[in-house]
């Protein structure tokens, strides 16, 4: 990849005095789809929270270009966060608002667009994720896959440079999960955003990932990094290969007595 978008340096994250992650180092290139993978409980989502400005790390830096997310003042951080779009695990749509209101709220808060322009933008974003005409639906009236796509429309409301996904395909059927993967690829190819995707869905990892890191739950740090397919073929780490083969790494399984 040509340019570095995000650089994570010596990051450490703790929960109530307990070190959860340490020595986290990686870089994400511009327009890359970057996968953060690992077993449940390895701290993937926590790392994501630190990267989007919701959880202050215990140490280290997260650089966006030359700007240090957590070293910056609150106003600067706020400005930087304007460049992010986040899709939460279950969409996290605001349940008391319609889809149109969900997508338009960030636009109302942060842009000077007129009502008509906002309406058109909302319609466009919903159409992009295949939800044209669903403006007046409430989140409770949607299926899981639709809610996830609506969350993506909201995440893209402000045309972010970087989109973060927290387990986008968790709990979705294979068809809807695939649809979401294709959506991610199409968006990247058309507007060139950078994607950081936290997931443990192997199908997604292999079909969309340009680059990845593997978070190890036991050591609390990154034990492998690279293109997922390359990792599968060449990784020296049996635990990583076991993860990428859905627990089929024979030598590793034998050690654990299965």
């Amino acid at each position: 990849m040509d340019e570095t978008e995000i650089a994570v340096r010596d990051l450490a994250i703790g929960y109530g005095g307990l070190a959860l992650l340490k020595n986290i180092n990686f870089t994400v290139g511009r327009s890359e789809i970057f996968i953060i993978m690992g077993e449940s409980g390895s701290g993937k989502s926590t790392l994501l929270k630190a990267m989007i400005g919701l959880k202050k790390p215990a140490g280290g830096r997260i650089l966006y270009g030359t700007m240090d997310l957590w070293g910056a003042g609150p106003d600067e951080r706020e400005r930087l966060m304007r460049r992010f779009g986040v899709l939460y695990q279950n969409g996290a749509l605001w349940t008391s608002m319609t889809l149109a209101e969900n997508v338009s709220l960030p636009l109302e808060q942060h842009t000077d667009l007129s009502r008509g322009e906002i309406r058109d933008t909302v319609a466009l974003k919903l159409a992009l994720v295949g939800l044209a005409g669903f403006e007046n639906f409430y989140p409770a009236e949607l299926s899981g896959g639709m809610a996830r796509r609506a969350g993506l429309a909201r995440a893209m409301a402000l045309d972010p440079d970087i989109l973060f996904f927290d387990e986008p395909s968790a709990g979705l059927d294979p068809v809807n999960a695939r649809m979401l993967d294709n959506l991610i690829l199409r968006i990247r190819d058309s507007i060139g955003s950078t994607f950081v995707v936290v997931t443990h869905e192997l199908a997604s990892i292999f079909s969309i990932g340009d680059n990845s890191v593997y978070l190890d739950a036991d050591s609390g740090t990154i034990t492998a990094a690279g293109h997922p397919k390359v990792l599968l073929a060449q990784s020296e780490d049996r635990k990583v290969r076991n993860f990428l083969t859905r627990g089929n790494e024979k030598s590793y399984a034998a050690d654990r007595g299965n």
């Binding site: 989007i52 919701l54 304007r82 939460y88 605001w94 709220l105 808060q109 909201r154 402000l158």
Partner: peptide
């Protein structure tokens, strides 16, 4: 619980 409050924060609201 539903992360809706986190979602508000990420939009700077």
């Amino acid at each position: 619980v539903n992360e809706e409050i986190d979602a508000l924060r990420t939009f700077g609201i």
